[in-house]
Design a protein around this nucleic acid. Structure first.
Lengths: 202, 202, 202, 202
DNA sequence: AATGAATGAGGATTCATTCAT
DNA sequence: AATGAATGAATCCTCATTCAT
């Protein structure tokens, strides 16, 4: 009699491995996080690992997919907001909040250097696109209602918002002295300045 | 009678390999740039590679050292400048100019994930310190003459300048649509705004 | 449900590789016995080899350790013997018996030249010490009861017993005409003569 | 105008490299004595090395050949001796004297494990044969005049003389406490006993 | 499902040897 | 003659992945 498959248990275990993968990638980088390290972190055997993920790359892709889903959720929750500019500021705040998971910043760093694998590259791009599409929609609206500077097209505004968030998370990962909570205020100020776009530099 | 050793030829060849390493690391990442790839790029045999660098890591370290030297040179050339703020802006411009070598941005990405090797970590830190020490000196002076905002201590100002430059280079590496030359203006404006520090969070 | 770990199978396999290593080292020397040769001899893949031994040196060390254990066992079995001199002669006989495994002599030769690796050197010394300590205990007793010559201190007696055994095994390895079984009688006679110590240099 | 070849200078240099090879082989073993090590020891460039010896193995062979020559010289000098037994004892003394060069013993050890190369094996055998042939001639004579035991054929007597000398040199190489000068007396006594062959062990 | 033993392709590195100068 | 830069075959070892139990 085959044991009935328990989808909940399966998903829980899968998430457990994903969590271990996040930890391992964040602290050892993608190459340094060998499957052995990941399995040890997850407390499972290597056979089990490949039972859930056909490939190490697939684990990475699953993590990215989770991140993408979360981004989609965030923007889904903003539907109907009356202040587009506030949505943008809220996203920044949301992104900073994610960095409270100490592994997040390290993970982002680790992932940058795996563009070898096509499927990973695709997942990475999908991830980015979720963020950019989500932001761009509100930038367009903010432009329409005149809440933000209009000297730059929506796409470039998005580029810069992403740039600031990425730079911030990179700094959190790299410098022990750079405290996310403390520096967040500076970030909000800088984003605010950027969105307003006072030109002082002619 | 020994053939006279030609140090110039040695250095030239060494630089040639360093150049190939930069290319390889930038496009494949550190792990992906196998010694075979690097040798093929440089057009040399594997034996030759290890004749010049005892280890793959040593090649990376040599590249980092070259970057550090260049940073030191830049700041050495600023000695006696009368406008500290201008030095800071010039450094940003200098950093952006370096990104004209298309490989530079990719290289920076690639390097982030190799903190495994202690010696590489040291070289990386030395590299960062050269930048930060160079910047901090002028931030302190700019503070003294009141050219920049004083609500943040020198160290944090430096953090943010680095953050903006790193974020910028990361974006250059990641997004094909993000043109360094075009976006540089935005960067200068943002840095200018940041250094001035208009009231935040209205 | 995990497959139950079978320590017996593990040990059997480990011993199988050790056996292959003994063969390979004996016939090719340490350097000449490449891991590929050892794996071919054992009929396993290279991955399997390193699954059991982290290093080629570790295989050698394991072999040495096995020899040391066997020496300890021999002397443990002599506890309480009433004729110390006979124990010494029995050890020589025991050592000669070991040479019936044709590989043993060749192995001893092969090992001499690997003092490069510290851990191997330690294992080698431990091996020697087991023999020497075992012998010395009985030499001291034989001295006490006047069964052997007393013009040489115990340590030097041991040196010479080892010398004779090593020389014998070396000859067995080097010369096809030197038959261990036939020559053993001569060895026993010589050892006997040495232990008695008839007047020298008439 | 080609520089006239100076045969003396050539031979001197060749001997210098042989000397360095002896040192290097003795202290690092054959495999451990890389050509780089040998060249450094000799104070020459690798090009020069291969100018004198087409192969690393050829250097080893040259050293062995020198030893063989020396053996031949020794026996040539014994021509016409009236006491064959004394010649045998003198050879043992001669062999021990050679061990005063500290490298000799280590070298013998190092060489044992290179039977891989056919030409080295041949040179090794030629070396041994010189010793054995030299000894055998006098053993036969000693037999004829009744100076030594006759229960063993000449070949086996030779085996045992070689065994004792090899065992001795091996012990000198391996044990720091085993002093060649001190122990030589014991060796002479043992050889004497062996040649006489008092049977006490029936 | 879960395991870990087994695998072998691939990677960094070593080293004897060649050769232009 | 003398040199050392250049070479690539060969070596040890790692690690993602497979598979029998």
């Amino acid at each position: 009699m085959p044991r009935p498959v328990d989808p909940d248990r399966y998903q829980a275990r899968r998430l457990h491995i994903i969590d271990a993968g996040l930890t391992a990638f964040a602290s050892h980088g993608y190459a340094g996080a060998t499957t052995a390290v990941i399995c040890r972190t997850a407390g499972i055997g290597s056979g089990t690992f490949f039972h859930y993920f056909p490939t190490k790359a697939d684990l990475l892709i699953a993590i990215l997919e989770l991140g993408r889903q979360e981004t989609l959720d965030f923007f889904a929750a903003q539907q109907g907001s009356s202040s587009p500019r506030q949505v943008l500021l809220d996203y920044v705040e949301h992104a900073v909040a994610n960095l409270e998971d100490e592994r997040a910043a390290g993970f982002i760093r680790a992932v940058g250097s795996v563009i070898t694998d096509d499927r990973v590259a695709d997942a990475l791009e999908a991830d980015e696109r979720a963020v950019r599409d989500g932001l761009e929609e509100w930038v367009v609206q903010a432009h329409a209602v005149g809440e933000i500077r209009t000297d730059l097209p929506a796409g470039r505004i998005v580029d810069w918002l992403v740039l600031l968030i990425d730079g911030f998370s990179s700094q959190v990962a790299a410098r022990t002295g750079f405290d996310a909570a403390t520096e967040a205020t500076v970030l909000y100020g800088l984003v605010d300045q950027f969105l307003t776009g006072t030109d002082q530099h002619r």
